[in-house]
Each structure stands twice: as C-alpha cells, then as structure tokens.
C-alpha cells in the first residue's frame, strides 16, 4: 500500500507543470524514503530529477518500493481541478496497480477524488555521480528566468561563463549579440552567491534552459552548478523537503 498526504498540494502541481513540457511519461518511484522521478527528455539531451522526501508528506506509508507510471499531460489535466489551498492524498495498491487515486481536500465540505490510469514505463535509470562542481551560482529564480527568456530573442545558444568578475550569459545571433553579467551581491532583495574554484565556460541550448525555468514558481532561488565538459545542473530546491534538478548536456566545440 502506498498512501501519502501532501498538505500543500500545489507543490506537486507545480512540479508536474515544471516537467511536463520535457517529460511525456515518467515513473513516480515511491519508497520508504521518498517519492522520486528521474527521466530524460525524448532527445536525451536533458534529464529531470525530482525528489520529495517522505517528511514532505503527512501520514506517509509505503510498504514496498513501487513505480507508478504516469502521463504528465494527463496528470496535469487532473491537477487543474486542485484548489489552491487543497491537500492531495495519494493512494495506490502494492501489486502492479492500474490506477493512482488522488483525493483533493480543501474546505471541510468538499472532497474530490480522481483516479489516474497508470501504465508500465520501461526506463533506463542513469547513475549520476555525486561529484563537486567547479562553479556554483545561487541567484533569484525569477532573475534567471528573465535572463534566459530575454536572450532567446537573439539566438539559440547561450554561453555561460563563470569567472572572477561574475557570471556572464552571452548570445551571438544573426541580428547581433548580447551579454548579461551577474555579479555577486549581498543585497537581501537579489542576493547572488558565486562559489568558484576554477573559471568555467560552457555552451547550452536556450530552448532547454527555458523549459527548466517552468520550475520558477517552486523556489525563490535557483542553484546553477557547472564543471568543464559535463552537464550543467539547474536546481530548484523545494524548502527542506526535496528538489527539482535539471541536467543539460553542453554543446561541444567541433
């Protein structure tokens, strides 16, 4: 039996909204410790990793590890009916369940229940090594969203370079080019923290960075981690309960 109540149901809704443009079908991997999602996009250029710790839920019960295969677009349709202050209670049987039951409860007078059909999804889980990164940048999530959105009008590839003076986002395109420099700042309102061992410069597809910023409502700050010649990690922490992490493979110089 899997049964868990998320008091702030809107957090789960925001997670599904954040990943549904990248991931069509995915497993909710439920275990005693957490509910997790790991999936690549169809082009295998990016990877989404979600974790919601059991402590994020009340009345968490997971008798044995279970993978619940969902279609994110269909899940999103059901979550459209979630009230903004509703809790969600998830329920599924142990042995290859056909459906996931979700109860939406807000005020005392209304309880809505939905059943989402599940499917068997064969996925390859990638092992992501827990290695330190050369550069880690923490900045406001909405500021990162604005930069990525603004630069997309100039071209399709963004060079992110982290150096002594700060982090530079650069785009070169047919109509011209642009640079946005983000420097360390202690100001409460838009605090920027840059930890750098060695300068790093990598090229990324803006289209994917834009997909990642769909997670902006989940977190005040985004954490961007880079090392030479490996995928960037764009992390949206969910309070102390988990995260949505996006990994994006760089574009490689020929």
């Amino acid at each position: 039996m899997f049964e868990a109540q998320l008091v702030e149901g809107k957090t789960f809704k925001a997670i599904i909204e954040a990943i549904k443009d990248l991931v069509v079908d995915c497993n909710l991997d439920c275990s005693e410790e957490e509910v997790a999602i790991q999936s690549m996009d169809s082009a295998h250029v990016s990877l989404v990793a979600v974790r919601l710790s059991a402590s994020a839920f009340s009345n968490y019960r997971c008798d044995r590890p279970n993978s619940l295969g969902i279609n994110t677009a269909n899940m999103s349709k059901i979550l459209k009916m979630l009230g903004k202050d509703d809790s969600i209670t998830f329920k599924a049987e142990d042995e290859s369940p056909d459906s996931l039951t979700m109860l939406f409860e807000g005020g005392k007078s209304t309880i809505a229940d939905f059943e989402l059909k599940l499917m068997d999804i064969e996925t390859e889980q990638l092992g992501i090594p827990d290695t330190p990164y050369q550069c880690t940048i923490q900045m406001r999530a909405d500021e990162f969203q604005r930069i990525v959105r603004d630069l997309q009008v100039l071209g399709d590839t963004c060079t992110i370079s982290c150096g002594k003076e700060g982090v530079r986002f650069s785009v070169t395109g047919a109509i011209g080019n642009g640079n946005i420099l983000v420097r360390s700042s202690d100001e409460d309102k838009d605090k920027v923290t840059i930890n750098m061992e060695e300068p790093v410069e990598l090229n990324f597809a803006l289209r994917y960075l834009n997909f990642f910023t769909k997670a902006t409502p989940l977190a005040e700050n985004v954490v961007i981690s880079m090392s030479p010649d490996v995928p960037v990690v764009v992390e949206y922490p969910i309070e102390e309960f988990g995260h949505v992490k996006f990994y994006l493979a760089p574009k490689i110089e020929e």
Partner: peptide, 14 residues
C-alpha cells in the same frame, strides 16, 4: 553551429 551532446554520453545506465 556547435553540436549538441547527449546526456547518455556523460552518465552511465544503472
């Protein structure tokens, strides 16, 4: 244009 690398070339399947 710079070619796009794929995720599976960085992380191995578990």
């Amino acid at each position: 244009r710079k070619p796009q690398a794929r995720m599976d070339s960085f992380f191995a399947v578990k």
